[in-house]
Design a protein around this nucleic acid. Structure first.
Length: 776
DNA sequence: ATTACAAACATTTTT
DNA sequence: TGTTTGTAAT
């Protein structure tokens, strides 16, 4: 297979094809609506396509590329199309190939990271990396950082490595090398220490001839900035640049694009500010918000015709997202069913007693819909699945899994630990890496004593000191050490044998297919045997995974090719469509669509998540709201929102209030009182039995018009029935004995913001909403 | 060097 | 509640 990214044999300065005879209008333009057509046909200069959910974003991107090529405005290899995920890149390439055939292979199409890596491989020496540098994954990064912390005598209690790593990554997201981190960002103690550590970290990476994900962009950026000749070369190479999911770009990516587009400014960015949900990973919504300031004269195209969802779903979503202030402002128009279509159902909103009841209800609804549940992929990559349950946090998944399993409803979970992140796979990969790259110290450390070879702390310490003193890789040091008599005989023999093994395996590379090399290593190292002998319940699965790994290696010609691939693509290609209900986080659902979507857990403190609010305030609230918006707009025909009054989190019960987002859904599009009357009955039951929702969020007041008359269902408005407990459990004092329906009798320990901490006699200490208890 | 137990902690995670 | 992480004991 030819490498579509290989620059080396391209003619960087090839002239664009001559536009002699414009071919007849191709069929693909005909199917576009006027806005899409404008987005496709506005070829020159900067273009921003604001593409709302379900408005045909990918279609516009692929058609635009096809159009450019069709008009001979550029050769395929002079078009650069950037995505965030491998999935998006794959989908785009497939759809492009369907339009224009195999020539689609030549387009420079890939993720920011994959494309950066191609450039970086060519110019690695400019940033101090040598040929064949390796790419660390999250696990390696953290282990490296921890080592550096130990060296620097830092206390992991005071500075959690993960937090420090996070800071470093955020700096990298902003395109900041250690020397460029502003003092203002490193004033406070932890930040100052993080910056120092950042410097050491980068130094150590170069020593290891390695870089992390962030570096792929950062180094490339540094090269383009420091070497105008190289920058100019790429600026001339690409005639047209297209970017997907522009709202998710971070500063480094923004600068990367700006540099590459600096010449002709033929930059087309597609995105939706309302779907920006990754700011916590460094994404800057600001990039899309100020596109036309950055690129004066930019054409802005709004795609607002939604081909996915019903008018009610869109209406509900629009009502919600209207509460955000920092928006470019788009309104989705349903292109499908009319608003008065009797088949169009409102969004169902349902309150339930607890998480378990919620799960039960959701699965009942799924069964009642009797929906023909198809898998999550339909071949074209445009995911069209049956039903999905979208949760805010992964811990919510369990309850649904339990219930689905009990009811025998087929389901699958998306997300969770990925194949290449599993322990046994990472270990196996470390073997392969060490064989392919003798100076990969991190790989060496990982597996010297896995399986156990009797090489402990002390032996390895000796080895580390020796390697560092001599400035050589650990494997080389191990070879020397095994030949000396510094170690105890037992350790020396073990180390010698290990080095000999690695040498022997390396000799195999090239002589036999990489999958056989892999299998041999796993056998001879005793690693496979280690898991086969393991009696723990997960061991058989691990053995299977190892076999699967050997199968995955078989897809590649060389070991290096395989290792390079997995460094960038941390997932195995999904094999066929998984059946049944899809269970995943809201974040994972972006870009997908389903006939029916369930959105459970719409409760204050869970969604919007308390921690997000604590950390990021108003901006985070808006991001949470966008997440809710993304969730709703995944649905084609039906959406179900639910919340529970009580939720067990980490073994203790938390009383919870409906999310403010529930109130923000416009009544006109929402069924808070279902037509069977069930919903109303349950609410009434709640009110009756448990004192109603009692207190709303302390910082919120009831919807206008019902504030003074809580306790009454305003006719036709669907307002929640609320019983006024004369304000936030007034009259309940600390030390008072109270009664709670679920927990029984207890004593109030503290009261704050309408919530009480109560020490229950049977149930222990819980936090409950004041409205749920009564004086005993 | 390895095992065992307790203590801490638990949003989201495209590459 | 389940997992992961660190320490203590063998």
């Amino acid at each position: 297979m030819t490498d579509p990214f290989d620059l080396t044999d391209d003619d960087l300065d090839a002239a664009p094809g001559d536009p002699e005879t414009p071919p007849p209008e191709p069929p693909w333009l005909a199917g576009l609506n006027p806005e899409q057509r404008r987005a496709v046909e506005t070829l020159d200069g900067p273009v921003l396509v604001l593409s709302g959910a379900g408005t045909g974003k990918t279609r516009v991107l692929t058609t635009r590329i096809a159009h450019i090529l069709h008009l001979r405005r550029a050769q395929p290899w002079r078009v650069l199309a950037v995505t965030f995920t491998n999935r998006a890149a794959r989908e785009m390439r497939e759809r492009l190939a369907a339009m224009i055939g195999p020539v689609a292979e030549s387009v420079w199409l890939g993720t920011f990271h994959a494309l950066s890596l191609r450039m970086l491989r060519r110019h690695a020496e400019k940033v101090g990396l040598r040929d064949g540098f390796s790419i660390l994954d999250a696990d390696d990064q953290l282990r490296l950082l921890k080592q550096l912390m130990v060296d620097a005598n830092m206390d992991p209690k005071r500075d959690p490595p993960k937090a420090l790593m996070g800071r470093i990554q955020r700096w990298k997201d902003r395109g900041l090398t250690p020397d460029r981190v502003p003092d203002a960002d490193a004033r406070e103690g932890a930040a100052r220490r993080a910056r120092e550590l950042y410097t050491r970290y980068q130094t150590r990476l170069l020593e290891l001839n390695a870089c992390d994900f962030g570096d792929l962009l950062l180094h490339t950026l540094a090269i383009l900035q420091a070497h105008p000749d190289i920058a100019a070369e790429y600026q001339r190479k690409f005639d047209y640049i297209l970017v997907d999911e522009y709202q998710d770009t971070n500063v480094a990516q923004y600068l990367w694009l700006r540099l590459l587009a600096a010449g002709h400014r033929n930059l087309c960015c597609v995105g939706d500010d309302d779907q920006s949900i990754y700011s916590w990973r460094g994404a800057e919504v600001g990039n899309i918000l100020r596109f036309d300031t950055d690129y004066p004269g930019a054409a802005v195209v709004r795609l607002e015709r939604n081909y996915r969802s019903t008018p009610t779903i869109l209406g509900a979503a629009a009502g919600l997202i209207r509460h955000n202030t920092d928006r470019l402002g788009k309104d989705l128009i349903a292109a499908g069913a009319a608003a008065d279509d009797p088949d169009v159902r409102k969004v169902t909103v349902r309150g339930l007693w607890d998480g378990e009841a919620e799960a039960r209800w959701v699965v009942e609804e799924i069964e009642a819909l009797g929906h023909e549940m198809r898998g999550s992929g339909n071949g074209t990559g445009n995911a069209a699945a049956g039903t999905a349950i979208l949760v805010r946090a992964t811990f919510q998944m369990r309850e649904f899994e339990d219930r689905l399993m009990t009811c025998g409803v087929p389901y699958h979970v998306i997300g969770g630990p990925r194949f290449y992140e599993r322990l046994e796979i990472r270990d196996a990969l470390a073997y392969l890496r060490l064989v392919a790259q003798p100076d990969d110290d991190l790989a060496f450390e990982r597996i010297v004593n896995t399986p156990k070879r009797g090489l402990g702390e002390t032996s390895l310490q000796t080895l580390q000191i020796m390697a560092r003193a001599a400035g050589i890789p650990l494997l080389a040091a191990a070879r020397d050490l095994a030949a000396s008599d510094e170690l105890k005989p037992r350790a020396r023999t073990a180390l010698g044998a290990f080095v000999a093994d690695v040498d022997r395996w390396r000799a195999l590379v090239g002589g036999m297919p990489p999958s056989e090399v892999c299998a041999t290593i796993l056998e001879e190292s005793g690693y496979a045997a280690m898991w086969k002998a393991d009696k723990s319940p997960e061991a058989p699965g691990r053995v299977e995974n190892l076999e699967e790994l050997v199968g995955a290696v078989a897809e590649f010609e060389t070991l290096d090719a395989f290792l390079e691939h997995i460094a960038l693509v941390m997932e195995t290609e999904s094999k066929g469509a998984a059946a049944g209900v899809t269970l995943m986080t809201l974040h994972a659902a972006k870009g997908l669509e389903f006939d029916v979507v369930f959105l459970p857990g719409w409760e204050e403190d869970l969604f919007p998540h308390k921690r997000a609010l604590d950390e990021g305030g108003q901006a985070s609230l808006e991001e949470e709201r966008r997440l809710a918006y993304v969730g709703l707009t995944r649905a084609r025909t039906r959406a179900f929102v639910s919340f529970a009054a009580n939720r067990r989190i980490f073994n203790n019960w938390q009383a919870s209030m409906p999310s403010r987002f529930v109130d923000e859904l416009p009544d006109a599009f929402v069924d808070k009182t279902s037509d069977t009357g069930l919903y109303g009955a349950v609410t009434a039951g709640f009110a009756e039995e448990f004192g109603g929702w009692g207190t709303r969020h302390p910082r919120r007041t009831l919807a206008a018009g019902s504030g003074g008359s809580a306790g009454r269902v305003a006719p036709g408005t669907g307002t929640w029935k609320v019983r006024d407990r004369s304000g936030d459990g007034q009259g309940i004092r600390v030390g008072q004995r109270v009664f709670h329906q679920k927990f029984g009798y207890g004593t109030v320990q503290s009261a704050e913001g309408g919530k009480l901490a109560v020490n229950f006699e049977k149930a222990g200490r819980k936090t409950v909403v004041a409205g749920f208890v009564e004086p005993a």
